[in-house]
Each structure stands twice: as structure tokens, then as C-alpha cells.
């Protein structure tokens, strides 16, 4: 079975199977209706979350099974917290909930400042014990990495260590990965696809369009 590979230091790419390319073909396609876009994006998100969970450490454990048998299995270690970057990141919360029922979820709202054209933090709501948790940072697209870096900054200011953070996204631009890792090399990026480049408008090429719009609006 195909397994996710670390293609670069702390960059984990989902196995590029025909099946995954097939799923991406659906969500990238401009002719895909919103209901299908949501359905297939959710399936990819599920795969990303499963891969993210796979990165977490486990502890060997002897499991007492029915009938008196024992099984040398594994116990999940550590607590998790999802942090979504509003609004597109919220689309990934359901996928996380499908794998971790009672997971805590924090939110960060970052928007581009009209005057400076730089990302600006508007709002944050995070669990108090966030520093003791593994963080799944949720944002479907890693383009320039601006908002993601600001989000990491917020998390670090709350006492989270960068090794505790896993950044889950569906599509990443090489420029974004580079910029992000030059600042936070210890944050693991888990992505479903790495595209060619950014265009002059900072859109990912060939990309899929505006994820938030396609998931919520169009």
C-alpha cells in the first residue's frame, strides 16, 4: 500500500496515487458543481487528517482482548487541538471531527489589511491549555504562506512549540513552502499536492480557484 512520503524536510506529501489525482481532478475542475466540490474536497481532507494523525507518536500497549488474548498494540498519546484559519480553514473542521470526535477547535481570523496589503490578525479564540496539545493548523491553500505564518506566530505566543504544530493543507505552492519553512522550519507541513508556482496575483498554478468561495459560496 502506498504511504505518504517526506519529500523534503518536514514536508509530507500524500501518495500521488491515481485515485488521489482523480479526486483532485474533480475539485480542480471549474465545471464541478459545488455539491460535488464539497463532497470530494471532504474526502481529500479526510485523507489529510488521517495522515496528520499518523504523524503523532503512539505508545506501545498490551491490549487485553475479549477471550483472554493479549495484543501488543498501540495507545494514542497526547491531546490534539484543531486550529482553523477563518473562513476556508473551517471547511476542514468536519474532517477532523470525523476522526477525533470530541477534538477541541480554536479559530484565528486573519485578513489582508487594506492599507498595507499585509495580513493582519483580527480575532483569535483558542483553548486555554493549547500549549499542552498537538496542533492541527487548518488552511486548505498554502500560497504565499502569509496568514499561516501569522497563525503560527499567534500559537507560539501562547506557549506552543513549533514541533507541536502540523500544518494541513490541500494544495501548496513551492514558494509558499519555502517562505514558511525559512521562518518556521520545525513545523511539519502535510499536503495533498504541490503545484508548479504562484502567478503574479499570488494564485497557485494550476490550482483550483478560490477554495473558500468554491466550498461556501459559488
Amino acid at each position: 500500500m502506498a504511504e505518504a512520503k517526506e519529500v523534503d524536510k518536514n514536508v509530507i506529501l500524500l501518495p500521488q496515487t491515481n485515485q488521489l489525482i482523480g479526486l483532485y481532478s474533480i475539485i480542480r475542475d471549474q465545471r464541478t458543481k459545488r455539491s460535488d466540490f464539497v463532497f470530494y474536497a471532504d474526502r481529500i481532507i479526510r485523507l489529510l487528517v488521517e495522515e496528520g494523525l499518523n504523524q503523532l507518536p503512539v505508545e506501545e500497549a498490551i491490549i487485553k482482548c475479549h477471550g483472554g488474548h493479549e495484543y501488543k498494540g498501540a495507545k494514542f498519546l497526547g491531546k490534539i487541538c484543531g486550529v482553523s484559519i477563518v473562513r476556508a480553514g473551517e471547511s476542514m473542521e468536519m474532517g477532523l471531527r470525523d476522526c477525533c470526535r470530541s477534538v477541541r477547535i480554536g479559530k484565528i481570523l486573519i485578513q489582508r489589511d487594506e492599507e498595507t496589503a499585509l495580513p493582519k490578525l483580527f480575532y483569535e479564540k483558542l483553548p486555554d491549555d493549547i500549549r499542552d496539545r498537538y496542533i492541527f493548523l487548518l488552511d486548505p491553500m498554502l500560497a504565499t504562506g502569509g496568514s499561516a505564518m501569522m497563525a503560527v506566530e499567534v500559537l507560539l505566543s501562547r506557549g506552543v512549540k513549533s514541533e507541536q504544530i502540523f500544518f494541513l493543507n490541500l494544495l501548496a505552492a513551492p514558494e509558499g513552502i519555502k517562505a514558511f519553512h525559512s521562518k518556521y522550519p520545525d513545523v511539519k507541513i502535510i499536503t495533498g499536492g504541490i503545484d508548479e508556482r504562484l502567478d503574479e496575483d499570488k494564485y497557485i498554478v494550476p490550482g483550483l480557484g478560490d477554495f473558500g468561495d468554491r466550498y461556501y459560496c459559488i
Binding site: Y24, Q30, R214
Partner: peptide, 19 residues
Amino acid sequence: YTDEIIPTGNNMSYNGLRM
């Protein structure tokens, strides 16, 4: 799967696959 050129959401083309 069959290869298919997909017009993406930002009017680019992507070498995709159709089941």
C-alpha cells in the same frame, strides 16, 4: 483511469485523471 486535461478554477489546465 484515463488522462484528461482539466480546466481549473483559475482557468489554467491541469493534467488530471478521470476514473
